[in-house]
Amino acid sequence: MRSKLKLSSILFAAAMVVYVANVLGILFTVVLNSISKDWFRGVFPKIFTGDWYRYVSRDHDIGSLMFVTFTVAFLDVLIALAVAFPAAYVLARKEFRGKGLLLSLFLLPMIVPPMAYGIPLAMLCYKFHLAARLSGVILVNLVPIVPFMILILMPFIEQVGTNLESAAVMLGAKRWTIFRKILVPLTVPGILTAGILSIVKTISMFDLTYLVAGGNTQTIVVALYADAYAAGARPPQAVDALAVIYFLTAMICLLVALKFVSPTQMVFKLK
């Protein structure tokens, strides 16, 4: 009995070590590659340099990439909150005919992968001259974020007892007052969770952004893909330097996010 238990622990630990070692290996390779020269053999590079970062800053307008990335992320969060919160409230509180259907329709954009609906969506953006514009990038990124937020916010709203709302009504509060003084303060953790997770998701959203972004509306991850795709056009270390910039941006957001939420909340929540 005891030896069996030990075996499973060893297997678990070994698998986790292999997994973590490879993930770390990938990340460290990128970082080392971006600060080294002539690393053709050996465990570590011999010559270190900052050249590739200078190269990247000549090659790309890093400021613009950052600006677009964060503008899209923050504006999307604000818009999505304004759209998702009222909807999550109704879905959490009210029973009505067709609620199940509506809920599954809201879930669809999370389940259907971007490449399946992204192409027609991108075509519509071209049709309405939104492609390669900031507004277009913001719009398409809303698609996975709004349902994601609805799903995260619903349980937080459910936790606020209906009695609290009734009590506020009996004390003379109107709808807007209840929203401002009771609902929002009590769902701040949910709003934070939804907001932060959405920012992390939007920063790393490649597929949809790639299909509509262009010129000076690229986000970092799209620029990174474009560089990696055109591998011959620039030294691979320069691509890795951009990768590090993206990696740091995403990691900082992730670390901030993990201060507030648990990793299991970052994947599709099963119910």
């Binding site: 490879n22 990938i26 959203m205 990174l224 990696a228 995403a250």
Partner: peptide, 27 residues
């Protein structure tokens, strides 16, 4: 453990692919 699991999801396929090219390359 969960942190290291969430990292590849957060970073996305583009960065992982770019990293794999060097890390899993012949050298």
């Amino acid at each position: 453990i969960t942190f290291f699991l969430i990292v590849p999801i957060t970073l996305g396929a583009v960065l992982i692919s770019e990293g794999m090219l060097s890390y899993m390359g012949p050298r």
